[in-house]
Design a protein around this nucleic acid. Structure first.
Length: 413
RNA sequence: CGGGGUCUAGUUCAUCGGUAGAACGCUCGCUUUGGGAGCGAGAAGUACAGGGUUCAAUUCCCUGGACCCCGACCA
């Protein structure tokens, strides 16, 4: 990709009144753009990061036997009335409701339990059909009382949501544990340290749920946990009388944290309320055991910036960086240098390496370096009069540079 | 929804009761190339909207709006 063709270019100044690191850097580097409070455009860089995050999620969930689909985002009132959530006051606070010209009522999706349950109900399920595991990536609309922290808390955001339907609680919990492991693998591949934390179910369920939390000082949540990993609870369910870990006896500590995923063992509530059953071996209706599982890719992108940055810009983990190599050509007025850079650019592409080539001719070296630091790709490769026959290679997360030939570079990255 | 702050050029901000300025960015020319270059020229603003006070309002007052922060709430 030629940076001269890219849109938008970087900005030198932080956006007005931005305080969150993800807000400042993602906007300045050209990953996102704000339309209104809590609503963001994913610009080409941001879209590439999201696609990489999504692909990792996709690969891991497919391994659990889940199937990808796409559900509508505009929902009729009737389906939500069936579960009782249309009139739930807490739901009402976050759900966007609207009417058409004929006064028919709709809502914008903030989750899809009802829609999936309705879908299952149309298919006359037998115990032989279960379990069923379906997921999608889609936009969620939530009328946040207060959108904030850059892309971390929006009114419109991306979510991967997975739903599973089972014949028994045992089978549901078995898959629940499988997804929990899958999530841990997903976050490990993305490059995030996550902690599984017990939490309340909010508007989804009365049961406790499990959240996937990234400990960081900018986090909105407070977690009480034991350092041996035997205990972790969200503040919302934590009993302050508990000062020692009930498992190992270690001191309970507290830390700020950001939730990036949440899994909900919902049980038979939705099945019973919406009267969606499966037939057992005796031909009798039985309630479906149901669970849902969410990861917010846009929030994951935000927390990555919160966790991985320095005073110059973002430091993307390789697995989700929009490109792997930032090829910086200097002295491009010199035709010999220019053709050398272009040859390297082509060779890297032939090797299947994603390269962003800063081919701008009238830009000073300092500005190109500053842009490379801000955008934060894992490897910076400089070619100039000074580099001679070698390539100057620098990792974004390291200070030192090395001079390598092309073969050595390929081995290094 | 309560509390606070902000709103002036594409962006970040100065300014001021007498109709507006810088930096960055942008355009053109020349120069320049290892950490956000230099010189020159240029384009660019109904000062968030509406109302009020005043001879005169971008400035003071009121109402509304948008955005940010804190709180309540939440992926």
């Amino acid at each position: 990709m030629l940076y001269s063709n890219y849109f938008p270019k970087t900005q030198k100044q932080d956006p007005t009144s931005a305080e969150a690191v993800n807000h400042k850097y993602l906007v300045r580097a050209g990953f996102i753009d704000q339309l209104m409070s809590g609503s963001w455009t994913l610009l080409p860089f941001g879209q590439r990061v999201i696609q990489k995050i999504n692909q990792i999620i996709r690969e891991e969930l497919n391994q659990t036997g889940a199937l990808e689909m796409a559900l509508p985002l505009l929902h009729p009132k009737e389906i939500w009335a069936r579960s009782g959530r249309w009139d739930d006051l807490k739901v009402d606070e976050i759900m966007y409701k609207l009417k058409d010209k004929n006064d028919r009522e709709y809502c914008l999706s903030f989750t899809h339990e009802e829609i999936v349950m309705d879908l299952l109900g149309k298919h006359n399920l037998s115990y032989k059909d279960l379990p069923i595991k379906l997921y999608q990536f889609s936009t969620k609309f939530r009328n946040e009382l207060r959108a904030k922290s850059g892309i971390m808390r929006g009114r419109e955001f991306l979510m991967k949501d997975l739903y599973s339907a089972h014949t028994s609680e045992e089978d549901m919990l078995k898959y629940y544990e499988e997804v929990k492991k899958s999530y841990l693998e997903i976050f490990k591949r993305i490059g995030l340290d996550v902690y599984v934390v017990e939490a309340a179910g909010g508007v989804f369920t009365d049961r406790n749920t499990h959240e996937f939390q990234v400990f960081n000082p900018a986090g909105e949540d407070t977690i009480y946990y034991c350092e041996n990993g035997d205990f972790a609870e969200n503040e919302e369910i934590y009993d302050p009388k508990l000062t020692k870990c009930p498992v190992c006896g270690a001191e309970i500590k507290t830390i700020k944290s950001t939730e990036v995923g949440n899994i909900f063992p919902l049980g038979t509530k939705y099945s019973q309320k919406m009267e969606v059953y499966y037939k057992d071996e005796n031909g009798e209706n039985q309630p479906i055991w149901f669970a849902s599982y969410g990861i917010g890719p846009t929030r994951v992108m935000g927390i990555l910036v919160e966790v991985f940055h320095d005073d110059k810009g973002i430091i993307w983990p390789e697995a989700v960086a929009p490109f792997k190599v930032h090829l910086v050509g200097l002295d491009l007025a010199d035709q010999a240098i220019k053709s050398k850079v272009e040859k390297t650019y082509k060779l890297l592409q032939v090797e299947g390496i994603e390269v962003l080539y800063d081919d701008r001719q009238d830009i000073s070296p300092g500005e190109k370096f500053a842009d490379a630091d801000l955008i934060g790709l894992p490897y910076r490769v400089v070619i100039s009069k000074r580099t001679g026959d070698k390539l100057e290679v620098k990792r974004r997360d390291k200070k030192d540079t090395e001079f390598l030939n092309f073969e050595q570079l390929l081995k290094r990255i």
